[in-house]
Every structure is written in C-alpha cells, then in structure tokens.
Amino acid sequence: MSDWYMLTVVGEDRPGIVARVTKALFEGGCNLGEASMMRLGGSFTIMLMVELEGTGERLLRLVEPVAGSLGLHVHVDAIAGRLHRHLEPDVSVTVYGADRAGIVARVTGALAEAGLHILELRSDVAGSKENPIYIMHIEGHAARGIDALRTALSQLGLEDIEVHLEPVTTMLG
C-alpha cells in the first residue's frame, strides 16, 4: 500500500540538483507525480509529488544524504492529493507595472472576492534595481464568470499598472 507525499526542497541553486534528488528517489523505489521546479532568485525550489510504500520519515531518509551534500533544506508532508485531479483554467490574468508594495495582495484579494480560484501563479521582478517592474501571470477558474473579475479589477483604481484579463478556451481535438 503506497501513499503520496509532497516533497519540498529548497537551497542555493547549482547545476545537478534535480538529477541528484530524483536519482535518490528512483533508487529508493519512489514514483514521481506532478511537480514544479524552478530557480527563484539564487535559490532552487522543488515541489514534487512522490509516491512510495512507507512513511514520510522513510522518504526523508532517502533524500537526506543528497540534500546534505548539496546544502538543501527538505520538508515532507503526507497529502490527500492524487494524480489526475487537474482543474481546467478558464481565465488568464496578466498584471505588470512599476513594482510597488501591495500589488499582489490588492489584485489577488479583489479577484478572490470576485470568485477567482488561482490554479497557477508565476511572478517575476524584471527591469533594473532603480526601476523594477513587477510581472505576474495567473491562470485560474472564474467561478462567477470573467465579467465579475473585470468589474472587481476596474473598481481597484490601479491606473498605473496594466491588467489584462482573457478567457481561456481550451480546444479539444
């Protein structure tokens, strides 16, 4: 009887982290599921669904040797999640503008209240140190329709940032 865990790995970025962590998991008999792995700032981050026979402690012990040698922090949570539970986004939101405190909280707060369920969010700070630009892209499900989101955003009075809302219509063929 096997269980799913969410394995979180964070540490200073260097080449080879993914290869070494997943090799340890493979050799330990784990099955890998959905994952998000990326460099954020100078750190490398892994959020990875792992299935194995055994406890979270066993998973931790499998990863610890390689994590120790690469200076990575590891965290394990037992999850109720399973594969094949994708939700389809029906709206995408792009926000960008001069970086300033509170953009994310205000925009996502208004969107949540108008029925947005965020399925994926990526954000970045580009530009220069003096003139940073904040860029955010969201894909989500609009439970009360896209117009409710549009109205909520227009009431925020964010004149100095760009917000683009677009329906996502998946073509199935």
Partner: peptide, 13 residues
C-alpha cells in the same frame, strides 16, 4: 497562443 487538449492525450492541456 491558446490552450489545447487532445482526445488522444487524456488529462492534460
């Protein structure tokens, strides 16, 4: 750019 799914590739878009 647009989102696609395929009857021959279930459960992924």
């Amino acid at each position: 750019k647009g989102r696609e799914g395929c009857m021959s590739v279930p459960d992924f878009t």
